[in-house]
Write a protein that binds this DNA or RNA. Sequence first.
DNA 1: CTTGACCCTGACACCAGTGTCAGGGTTTAT
DNA 2: ATAAACCCTGACACTGGTGTCAGGGTCAAG
Lengths: 121, 121
Amino acid sequence: MKIGELAALTGVSVRSLRYYERQGLIQPFRQDNGYREYSPLAVNTVETIKLYLNLGLSTEEIAGFLHCVLKNKEAFCAEVMPLYRSKLEEIERQLTELNQIKRNLQDRMASILQEQQNEEE
Amino acid sequence: MKIGELAALTGVSVRSLRYYERQGLIQPFRQDNGYREYSPLAVNTVETIKLYLNLGLSTEEIAGFLHCVLKNKEAFCAEVMPLYRSKLEEIERQLTELNQIKRNLQDRMASILQEQQNEEE
DNA sequence: CTTGACCCTGACACCAGTGTCAGGGTTTAT
DNA sequence: ATAAACCCTGACACTGGTGTCAGGGTCAAG
């Protein structure tokens, strides 16, 4: 199938499909006229890419193990667990940071409301 | 004082001080030779900017109320509360998203470990 | 044969604050 | 007077996936 069809089937823009190719995530054949020709399996590949992108992995990280998980179960791919672990740590860090900011914001808002009430009295 | 001194006193790079100026956050005088001349109060201004940047506000947002909070208590500046509210909502959204990713990651990791244990048996 | 719908590549824009370099002036201390 | 340490402006890079435009081929239906 051509790139437009794949885009329609997966909900991924043509632009992004070409980007994934440049990042080494998917390698369509080329027709004589230069058009990309995708196998029907490409739908699955793209869905898999979407899944990992939604997990917060970068295309570069995904490129490191995609060929493996497309052929085997995830548990079989040694590259995956360390990546998940470090990504989880990163998320934890971000959560900690966001929670600090949140608490800080809430404290400041509470102070302001407090002062405004004092003002009204 | 000159820009290098202010940078040393506040821990903010010279580059960033010039950026803050361009964003309208601070307006030093200029000496005849073109050098920026900062009042001693600029230290306080920069510390205040740092505080709001750490709350996740952008320089553009800070520019909207900085002149007010430098003269008055925060509670007096009407611009602040709405900004805090929307920033808090944004943080909540990010927290929700990160927590979803975190849960998703943990589930996948658990599945992998499970399968690997089954394998060993 | 023409029109419209596709396809191709390459390139700029975005977010936002910071680093860094180029190219050039000023000041200060030796 | 010379060198070191500052200062100035302007500009590019970075992050990373996506939108979008320019400029140009291809193909299918009328």
